[in-house]
């Protein structure tokens, strides 16, 4: 599978990455090689292999449903770029 220029641009946009336009063909080649490796792996017979969701052979520990965090709003907001009425301010998303 080989990626087109438009695929690379789309992926970059989804990840909010700014990429150098001239570097796009190189990215397309590199990413296509990775997909080639995935294709190669897909050909391996894995019928008897249990699907792996995590490389560690362990199970999620659960925590008791208790409130353990205290309000530290002032500390968190002291390093925020903009705050008003105790809200974090961000550029408008909906035009």
């Amino acid at each position: 599978m080989s990626l087109e220029r438009s695929d690379v641009e789309k992926i970059a946009h989804l990840a909010r990455l700014a990429i150098d336009r001239d570097a796009v063909p190189q990215y397309a080649r590199d990413l296509s090689n990775i997909l080639g490796l995935v294709e190669q792996m897909n050909r391996v017979d894995t019928d008897d292999i249990k699907p792996l969701a995590h490389p560690l052979d362990a199970v999620q520990r659960l925590r008791a449903d208790r409130v353990t965090e205290t309000d530290e709003r002032d500390r968190f907001q002291s390093i925020a770029p903009a705050v008003e009425a105790h809200l974090y301010l961000v550029p408008k998303v909906i035009e």
Binding site: R66, V67, E72, H86
Partner: peptide, 27 residues
């Protein structure tokens, strides 16, 4: 209807003043 959040120990009570129940994990 839990007391705390799904992945952190911050409270889930409705109607609290803004950002007083948002801990480092939630942020």
């Amino acid at each position: 209807a839990t007391q705390s959040k799904i992945f952190s120990g911050a409270a889930t009570a409705y109607g609290a003043p803004p950002n007083t129940q948002a801990c480092a994990v939630d942020l």
